[in-house]
């Protein structure tokens, strides 16, 4: 008996009583409400109306705020586009001439990396500094730089200034602006020269030893014995760097020339 609520002889409802409760119109209305698409319901107009008003207000606000303060916007653009200040500070620091110094007592690999870093910084400095004096800038020649590199072993001819181009101001060792430098060439000594009237006044030699990177400085365009010994101690395929090469362009004016990099060979 517990499972169900058993009703014995419950009073019966008459058909009239049941039929009285029939209401097809209400049923139809309820059906239409359920089946009515959202676009036809009052909610649709409410939601879309509110959204439209919101968009309009947003648009008006944006328009008015942007038209009243153009100078603020311009200032913001300038702030966003201006370069970082640190870059200039770094370049100024590197400009100072460095005496012979040991950069670090580290492993050769790390020293090499350190040296490259120093070199890059100096390169950046070089790039940022106007090393060419207006008077000495000569028009670009049609002959490309690569063609000049193809004949590095040609004897230097200062009168060859006539083929002047921007490479004429480039320092060279035995006519080469890079690539391989033979041990025999080092043993025979060499000078750093240019194809133009510019005379090299001083330069730095950077070599990487097992004790760290070493920098030698000389106030002439010639190799010193100390430098020569340091280079000869380097093995074949080692790299040597000539940095901070200062040149005299005449009239007491100095300019910094492009750095050099050579790989040692037999």
């Amino acid at each position: 008996m517990d499972n169900y609520n058993i009703k014995l002889d419950r009073p019966k409802l008459t058909s009239e009583e049941i039929v009285q409760r029939k209401d097809f119109d209400t049923l139809m209305n309820n059906h239409e409400i359920i089946k009515r698409p959202f676009r036809k319901s009052p909610w649709f107009f409410g939601v879309t109306g509110m959204a439209t008003i919101g968009l309009l207000l947003g648009g008006v606000y944006t328009f008015t705020s942007s038209s009243h303060k153009p100078e603020e916007q311009a200032l913001q653009i300038v702030k966003n586009d201006s370069p970082k200040l640190e870059a200039k500070l770094v370049s100024l620091e590197v400009m100072e001439p460095a005496p012979e110094k040991v950069l670090a007592m580290q492993s050769p690999h790390e020293n090499k990396r350190e040296l490259k870093k120093v070199k890059n910084e100096k390169k950046n400095n070089y790039d940022n500094t106007n090393t060419l004096i207006e008077n000495t800038v000569k028009p670009m020649v049609e002959e490309p730089a690569v063609q000049k590199e193809k004949k590095p072993s040609e004897p230097l001819d200062k009168s060859a200034n006539v083929r002047s181009g921007y490479l004429d101001n480039h320092p060279r060792i035995n006519g080469k602006i890079g690539g391989k430098l033979k041990m025999s060439e080092v043993e025979n000594n060499f000078n750093i020269l240019t194809d133009s009237e510019i005379e090299v006044l001083s330069f730095e030699l950077h070599v990487v030893t097992e004790f760290g990177a070493k920098v030698y400085q000389n106030n002439s365009n010639a190799l010193t014995n100390e430098m020569k010994n340091a280079i000869l101690k380097q093995g074949v395929n080692s790299e040597i760097y000539f940095e901070n090469i200062q040149g005299d362009v005449g009239g007491g004016k100095k300019m910094r020339l492009s750095p050099l990099k050579y790989s040692l060979s037999k």
């Binding site: 409802l13 058909s15 049941i18 097809f24 049923l27 239409e32």
Partner: peptide, 27 residues
């Protein structure tokens, strides 16, 4: 057309109500 559901509603309303009321306490 849902409006044409009326004859079915009229025919079966009482039967369905009695079936439900047979199983429910609350009229």
């Amino acid at each position: 057309n849902p409006k044409r559901f009326a004859p079915l509603y009229d025919k079966y309303y009482e039967q369905i109500f009695r079936y439900i009321y047979q199983r429910m306490d609350d009229k």
